[in-house]
Amino acid sequence: MEKNIEVSLLFDFYGELLKPSGRQAIDLYYNDDLSLAEIADQTKITRQGVRDSIKRCEQQLFDFEKKLGLYKRFCELEKGLEEISATAREIFDNSHDNNIKALADKIKSTADALKE
């Protein structure tokens, strides 16, 4: 996965654990696509200070994921729910029993709701 996307996703999971100044720098850099100079101007710190803050926060995000694994677990759950939904859809399509169809439809609906 591209690093920018990965950092953005990790920021969604762990951003609140960062210091406010680092959180702001990461948000402006990755989500608002501002340059280091633009962030420095906006936050009134040096360009090098912004770069250091972003690099430090990136490392913290990767460390949080390594220790907590929330993003990895989220991806596994999402994949599992998709498999459950696909299996329920297959059961529904291949069954002639209305009770089984109703149960398969309920399983699919529940899995789909959990994915949202």
Rank of each mutant, 00 (worst) to 15 (best):
S95P: 04
K106N: 13
A40S: 13
A111V: 03
L61R: 10
H96F: 04
E6Q: 10
K66L: 09
R23S: 10
E65D: 13
S95F: 03
R23E: 14
G15R: 14
Q24M: 12
D27H: 15
G80T: 08
K72C: 04
K101Q: 12
A102Q: 14
I5E: 15
L36S: 11
N98P: 02
F92G: 03
E90L: 06
K19H: 10
K115A: 05
N31S: 14
G80E: 14
K3H: 05
L34V: 03
K101T: 00
Q48V: 00
L68W: 09
D63L: 09
L17G: 14
A104Y: 07
I107P: 02
S109K: 12
E82D: 11
Q60F: 09
I26M: 15
C75M: 12
A104W: 04
Q48S: 04
A88I: 04
E2N: 08
I107D: 06
F62I: 01
E65G: 05
M1L: 06
I26Y: 13
I100G: 05
Y71S: 01
M1E: 09
L68R: 12
I100K: 11
Y71K: 05
F13I: 03
S8E: 12
G69N: 10
R73V: 05
F11L: 07
K106E: 13
L114F: 13
N98Y: 07
D63G: 01
A88P: 09
L36I: 03
L9T: 05
G15E: 12
G22C: 07
N99D: 13
D33H: 15
A88Q: 07
T87M: 13
L17K: 14
K72P: 01
N98V: 08
E2Q: 06
E58I: 01
E78Y: 12
K101E: 03
F62R: 11
R89S: 12
F62M: 08
L77K: 10
K44P: 00
A37S: 14
K79D: 10
D63E: 14
L68C: 04
Y30M: 11
D32W: 12
V50A: 06
E83D: 13
